[in-house]
Design a protein around this nucleic acid. Sequence first.
DNA 1: TTGTAAGCGTTATCAT
DNA 2: ATGATAACGCTTACAA
Lengths: 347, 347
Amino acid sequence: MTTRDIKVRMASKLKKITIKDIAKLSGYSIKTVSRVINNEVSVKAETREKIIKVMADNRFQANMFAKGLKGNKTNIIVVFVDRHDNEHLSMWHIILLKYLFNYAKVVGMKIVVSPSSSSSFSLDDTDAFNLITNGLANGVILLETIENDPRVKYFETTNIPYVVFGEPDDMTVPSVSLDNYLVGYKGGAYLIEKGYKNIMFFVGDTTFLSNKKRITGFKNALTEQNVNYKVYTHVNSMEIAYSTAKEIIGKDNIDAFYVSGDERAIGVYRAIHEAGLKIPEDIAVLGVDNLKVGEFLFPPISTIEQDFKEIAILCLDLIANQVKDEQYELTKKTYRLEPMVVERKST
Amino acid sequence: MTTRDIKVRMASKLKKITIKDIAKLSGYSIKTVSRVINNEVSVKAETREKIIKVMADNRFQANMFAKGLKGNKTNIIVVFVDRHDNEHLSMWHIILLKYLFNYAKVVGMKIVVSPSSSSSFSLDDTDAFNLITNGLANGVILLETIENDPRVKYFETTNIPYVVFGEPDDMTVPSVSLDNYLVGYKGGAYLIEKGYKNIMFFVGDTTFLSNKKRITGFKNALTEQNVNYKVYTHVNSMEIAYSTAKEIIGKDNIDAFYVSGDERAIGVYRAIHEAGLKIPEDIAVLGVDNLKVGEFLFPPISTIEQDFKEIAILCLDLIANQVKDEQYELTKKTYRLEPMVVERKST
DNA sequence: TTGTAAGCGTTATCAT
DNA sequence: ATGATAACGCTTACAA
């Protein structure tokens, strides 16, 4: 058996039935079948029914490549997650993706998740970014963005529907986010109100603007209050949160940690426990995100809620309309949700 | 301005440069440009260089739809995550996906994640499954599978490269997994060796075969040992683990929990703490997966390690070769990794 | 209401 | 080593 034989055999096995086949089988022209596929009105009801039956009987599926070549939509939306030093996903992604997956079905879009770097996006075809440059996906949800994100520029110039989850530097960029200034401010204010006097704020990388805003808000809440505080940036993981907390516990009479992210707070919990201290009696902890796991920590963590369901819906609505209708004009393109404190037992 | 005007304007803005343009600009024929694109040998070095320069200057990208229409590969591999009552992802997914994303780059594939149900997969175009039926993706990694998974049948009959992560009922199905029988067995044996006498085993849904095997292994380790045990199935989440543990702690002199999944173990930890008991002095806990978070629990959890990196590499190698070469024959299609106990402080 | 023919951007065939 | 031309499966003018 030659290579060619094998190829032929495979091809026959995979024989896709095309619009041509349906035309032949139904006795109508290709164009009429096409009309039925695309729900055009000018087809006699009887004809439509017949053709639909033939398509169903043969499990016909219109070829996406052919459609795409003619400029059609795939209705695929890609969610880009930052590569983050190759760590990619964290716990809050799980929740957001869950709602994104669910809601995508109701707006008739398909969601696909792929990694992408804000720092080094490339147009070459080893990168998932070319799902976009090729038109394979019709819209983008950018999870996290940095200042002057080159991807944003790309979407703008190429007119590709997109939205960023996070706070971009530029208010003309479509985006959905907690009001991060308020996250910092409310968290700080809450801890002060609770009577804490030495508050350590742990937050991630300041290349992400959201973090910068949290810091500003936090500082504004604490200035001119009779309170000591310190901000630790680049606390990018549970591990770093743990080791940083471990190092400073005991010094400076710390009585509260405000940790940007419940996931990181797990590390802080551990450092406190190891020091033989009690939460909240000796040291309080306030997190952000309201992750499920927070309720199961001991004690359950007080946190700033992030309404991921709402966020998912806003993100998808923002782009789904543009994907469906190129002329669609966004009336409102930036959403800032108000953060709320969820008080549990750690404060 | 008419609708048509807008369309035209957009079109011109988006004007993609094609192989035809490159041909014209370089002074060669379309076919020769195509040869360069596809690295065919029979092109004079000088010609190749000239054409490459023109392509680079114009940021040319070959159109994937056109390629696809001609039967070309996209080198996209889709990872299907089970919808799991709309919860989709859990913590171990984060780790596996991380390695999948990373390793995909080295084998020249693009990874894309999408939800899919083993129970109700559909061929209609609202479902991400048609990334496959349309040939938009060339291979599949199926995260978890059930008995008689209809998707597996589909891949088999259509000859689509795939691999399941998990233990299918059928040994002819390409798969990578921990040896789940051994997971159950080793965990049980370890706890016995440690002297525990009343061991509760928490495990998820038994529609997933992996769980069935863990149970069998566990039981085999414990029978004829002078030990009490009980198996709780359908413990599908942290919450259920928590409430189930809460209900039974105190009864039956339980001295150890063996929890299939570190994530669920977090719930058990909480139940134990709430009861005012100490880990491991009063009750021991052994998890599975070796999640990062396990090291930060208090005390750090002993667990059965799952080598996600190795798993990711095996999964990708298994399909990447088939994607690249249709005639590629798998010499070995099922991998069962040996689980290892990682002892920390909870046992 | 239906059909014919051209074209989307590639690759494959067969020349030269 | 290079090129003309026909596919691939669909949509869109334009006719009928």
